[in-house]
């Protein structure tokens, strides 16, 4: 049903993910807000270590979809299975999925009353029950990884947008997730700050993280993505490997979208 042979060369690297296990499986997922249908039978599978970029005009349901994967939104029909755990009303499954899936938001959503280090270590200490010293060491390591260890004692309001978004990535990574979801991570940033965030995301992708990214950054998609998914009106219109998607789109709507955005 879905095209999962993403063995094309992407961004200078060759990856064969055909043997990898399924990380996220969506079957016929639908969701309504009142009488507006936001998702309409979305089906897709994402393999371990795969990087998938979701494209689409605004209002096409891409954000809703990845928020359903984290159960920030609740789908009403269909199945979502994340790392062999099905998302249901089961308390235990929700807790498990939340700690396996990290999420980065468009508006950063850092906690403004905590300093940067506390932002990163709060969840490991209270959710993963790590001792504080260990959590702080890990937090500093992560801040170093995203390139801002010197800001650890500052507050979010004192940081630039790009720095805040990198802290948000570090905060999500501190829970040691197996999947990272990015909901338009660069849309709220000034142009000169986009690159620093994308660079962090690229290193993350190279390190083998399974990623689902909603973005309009075509450069990032071409360079890093294994596969692209194009959505419109709550449905998946087309999904294909990066190269084929850009060079040879099959659907008319995809072509139209690409012609507008490129």
């Amino acid at each position: 049903m879905t095209d999962t042979t993403a063995a094309e060369p992407t961004g200078g690297q060759t990856r064969d993910l055909s043997g990898a296990r399924d990380m996220i499986v969506c079957e016929d997922v639908s969701k309504w807000y009142g009488d507006f249908q936001a998702l309409d039978g979305v089906s897709a599978t994402i393999k371990e270590q795969e990087v998938v970029v979701v494209l689409g005009p605004s209002g096409s349901g891409k954000s809703t979809w990845i928020r359903c994967i984290n159960r920030l939104e609740i789908h009403q029909e269909g199945r979502i299975v994340v790392d062999d755990v099905e998302l249901t009303n089961d308390l235990r499954n929700i807790e498990k999925v939340r700690s396996e899936v990290g999420m980065v938001f468009q508006q950063f959503n850092l906690f403004p009353h905590l300093n940067i280090l506390d932002n990163v270590t709060l969840a490991p200490i209270w959710v993963r029950k790590k001792p504080r010293a260990e959590a702080e060491a890990q937090g500093m390591a992560l801040l170093e990884r995203v390139g801002i260890p010197e800001q650890a004692q500052k507050y979010p309001g004192q940081l630039s947008g790009g720095q805040q978004q990198r802290v948000a990535i570090a905060r999500a990574l501190a829970m040691e997730p197996r999947i990272m979801l990015f909901d338009e991570p660069t849309s709220a940033l000034d142009p000169e700050m986009i690159k620093e965030v994308l660079d962090v995301m690229k290193t993350l992708a190279l390190s083998g993280m399974t990623m689902m990214v909603v973005t309009h950054e075509m450069g990032f998609a071409k360079e890093v993505a294994d596969r692209l998914i194009f959505m419109e009106g709550g449905q998946i219109v087309e999904q294909n490997t990066t190269e084929l998607f850009f060079s040879n789109p099959t659907e008319e709507r995809t072509k139209l979208f690409l012609s507008q955005i490129l």
Binding site: Q76, E77, G78, R79, E86, T88, N89, D90, L91, R92
Partner: peptide
């Protein structure tokens, strides 16, 4: 209509609803 499609049953004491 969700219920019949859910494959594994959720035990009552863990069902958030």
């Amino acid at each position: 209509t969700t219920q019949e499609r859910v494959s594994q049953r959720v035990p009552l004491w863990r069902d958030v609803v």
